[in-house]
Design a protein around this nucleic acid. Structure first.
Lengths: 350, 350
DNA sequence: TTGAAAGCGCTAACAA
DNA sequence: TTGTTAGCGCTTTCAA
């Protein structure tokens, strides 16, 4: 039986399915599948042409839901971050999206807002949606991955500095990074170096605090004041005000995030003091904002794109069958002006 | 025939399906559906309890792909923005995610990077994935929505200031907003007000340029210099340098985005000039960065959350069946210090 | 109130 | 090389 509907361009009975294409091209539905997916069977060139033609004419586009149901994979990944408005996380999300797209995966974005409940709800929701994997930049020390485990969905922990038994995780050497930032301040001759530390949900001591402490100890310098506050501009601003008002004001401050440093800069400016003249500042993350603050921040840069690429590889790429592993990335001190170094370079990024 | 497998907790033959639950609870699969979806039929309390129990014990979770296939809806929306690392767009994405989640929709995030090709590819990809709708913050004047139209997927244009025939769109009154920013500068007594304008793909004149021009004309003041550059920090920096070097330096600058203003601030600082003393600055968008720049930027704030909520409502909410409509939102001038106003308020946001 | 069963669009094993 | 067909897990009509 040969095609006999070739004259009617579109039957127009709702969305075009594989069946319509098959009928139009005068072949079976299997053949359509073969040409759409490039396999698993070969198709004669002439037939292929007919099918391609039918596809074009009818405007056929495969139904991803059906495909996902059949294959058990939606070619979709989930990403849970605390807050997409935070430059560090939006950068991370962007990088993850790019890396995932490279492998044909789409990204479901969710913000947990730092809430345990929301994080759990998102994990559950993503699992129900049959994502093929999830990236989790968790606010929890021990995230609740039960739902993922049950659905057999792989997961990689992002922004995770310490090893978590049984999990793939990606992180940066916080302590080492913090050391370089503090040592740089020490090198500038500072001996009263404060710390503006972000507050984590975990009660464990943060690697950045460790690094700050170690650098000071190794240099035989007494610990400066330390203030804990949110990892935000406002948190930094408040911390800055307290640091400035304290009994013996530091001559330099290391902030655990660029956002905090930006808040600190404002507190210092408002106090009528100069950076780095009166107080030097260094920070952590290396987001774009740090390059355009005034003065530009000397900061410890996290290799976000490399981490995102590694995360995708571990989740659904080449490394997906290797045993769970904690991958630590090195940081790089990006010297600009807030530390006291002479103005060298004009801005280069966006 | 009554349940007879109640003793075996989990048969463990791959993922638990509705069938397993039915068997375990000793009911039909239809009943399981009824309790899971709370309808369309009522279920006897006792039966419901049995089913709920089975669900809990077996750890059943519905397969979203199957549901999507059956229902023709994936409860998923797509979002295409130029760049999630740009604070304005990351804020927008966050707001859209929140508003969509409210209605049970998940968000597929994609970055077009301002590339026409990528935008088209994303539209096509989202259509294939059977999303129920897409938000498009396009870089094109006339986006290529053919794929969406064919798949009968609704779309709303975000960040769209002008009416686009046949499309739902959401935007802000750029000209009016720019006017308030420029008029404020005029009010401060400036008579040489430059414009740092972003470069759009469209060749049409941007509303912000119009607003700037109108405000000047209405005040009987001559047009200041105008520089076109990217909507980025770097773009602003470069524009700032040129504006400062020009023959007759403006005493005030209006920038078409906060990012550009931040770049301009740096250019001014580097030139050893003071803001607002030597040069006043106002800008557009109202992102968090504007509050913590030095000095804090007086900026025209876009009601991002309200726009996101309206976009979701128009796409899949209450307004989804109303005829396509262009919704314009009003902006609000947020007065801070870069314009020359006395320092009033300390930072309040994050 | 419950159950049987058709079928959403697709893939791929198997048959021809 | 191509076609037939059995499901993937779910919803819902229709019958009991």
């Amino acid at each position: 039986m040969v095609s006999m509907t070739s004259t009617a361009p579109v039957a127009s009975h709702g969305p075009v399915t594989r069946k319509d294409v098959a009928r139009y091209a005068g072949v079976s539905t299997a053949v359509v599948s073969y040409v759409v997916n490039g396999g698993p069977k070969r198709v004669a060139p002439a037939t292929e042409a007919k099918v391609q033609d039918a596809i074009r004419v009818l405007g056929y586009r495969p139904n991803a839901a059906a495909r996902a149901l059949k294959l058990g994979s939606s070619e979709t990944l989930g990403l849970i971050i605390p807050d997409n408005s935070n430059p560090f996380f939006s950068l991370l999300a962007h990088a993850v999206e790019d890396a995932a797209a490279e492998l044909g995966f789409a990204l479901l974005l969710t913000n947990s807002g730092g809430s345990l409940t929301k994080e759990r709800r998102h994990i559950r929701n993503l699992a129900a949606r049959q994502v093929d994997g999830v990236f989790l930049a968790s606010v929890l020390f021990e995230p609740d991955l039960e739902d993922l485990a049950k659905a057999d969905i792989p997961c990689v922990l992002l922004n995770n500095d310490r090893e978590t038994e049984g999990f793939n995780s990606i992180g940066v050497d916080l302590a080492a990074g913090a050391r370089t930032a503090v040592e740089h301040l020490l090198w500038h001759g500072h001996t009263r170096i404060g710390l503006a530390m972000g507050t984590n949900v975990s009660n464990d001591i943060d690697g950045r605090e460790l690094g700050w402490r170690e650098a000071l100890r190794d240099a035989g310098v007494a610990e400066g004041p330390i203030i804990h506050s949110d990892f935000t501009r406002l948190g930094g601003y408040l911390a800055g005000q307290r640091l400035l008002a304290g009994p013996d004001r530091p001559t330099a401050i290391f902030a655990s995030s660029d956002m905090q440093a930006i808040g600190i800069l404002r507190a210092i400016h408002e106090a009528g003091l100069a950076v780095p003249g009166d107080i030097a500042v260094t920070s952590f993350d290396g987001v774009a904002d740090a390059e355009y603050s005034w003065p530009a921040l000397t900061t410890v840069e996290q290799p976000v794109r490399a981490m995102a690429a590694a995360a995708v590889t571990a989740l659904v790429g080449a490394a997906r069958h290797e045993p769970a592993q904690h991958r630590i990335f090195p940081t790089a001190l990006h010297v600009r002006q807030s530390c006291g170094c002479p103005d060298g370079n004009a801005p280069q990024g966006a």
